[in-house]
């Protein structure tokens, strides 16, 4: 019965799903941790709300990168309209292309969440040093961006392949 299934599209969709799931889960964990710390700081000093909110948002970008890759994949493979005919090899390629942002997104968002928590602690004591705390957290994000880049380039590259 499996012979009638077009496995290409299945794997391609699996890739898109993984990109948004794993990066999203990572961001959710990171933002959640940062949120706990932020709430602690705001109980002491409500006027720091806007500062800690910005710090809390920082680990959220990986989820967006995951969404971005998922969306580009969905539109490339024709799920969002158009023909959805993908060869088996291409489907696997899409899956592979989605993996960098899925895995790096998951782990870097969690690590960035930890850096953001420390940054929030720093804001509690020295609010004027906020931009440095932001930079520390942004350092982690570099690797998510590099992974995103590889995913993007790979997905656009696959579209042009003739297999």
């Amino acid at each position: 019965m499996f012979e009638s299934i077009d496995w290409g599209i299945v794997f391609a969709l699996l890739g898109a799903a993984l990109a948004s799931i794993m990066a999203g889960v990572g961001s959710a964990i990171g933002v959640g941790k940062a949120g706990e710390a932020a709430a602690g700081v705001v109980t002491e000093d409500p006027s720091k709300f806007s500062k800690v909110l910005i710090m809390q948002l920082l680990p959220g970008t990986q989820g967006i990168y995951g969404l971005l890759i998922a969306f580009i994949t969905l539109s490339q493979i024709g799920i969002l309209g158009g023909s959805a005919e993908i060869s088996f090899a291409k489907g696997l390629l899409y899956l592979a292309a989605c993996l960098p942002i899925a895995i790096v997104g998951l782990l870097s968002a969690i690590s960035q969440g930890k850096a953001a928590v420390s940054g929030i602690m720093m804001i509690a004591k020295k609010p004027d040093q906020m931009s440095k705390g932001m930079i520390f957290a942004a350092m982690v994000e570099t690797y998510a961006i590099l992974a995103l880049l590889v995913s993007i380039l790979a997905i656009f590259g696959i579209a042009g392949l003739n297999i």
Binding site: T61, Y65, L67, L68, I145, L146, L148, L149, I152
Partner: peptide
């Protein structure tokens, strides 16, 4: 130098997410 690839990544992120919402 590779670090500047974020110009591409963040630029694309804005455009593509906006497209997602439009869609």
């Amino acid at each position: 130098i590779l670090s500047y690839s974020r110009l591409l990544a963040l630029g694309l992120a804005t455009g593509v997410i906006a497209t997602v919402f439009n869609k």
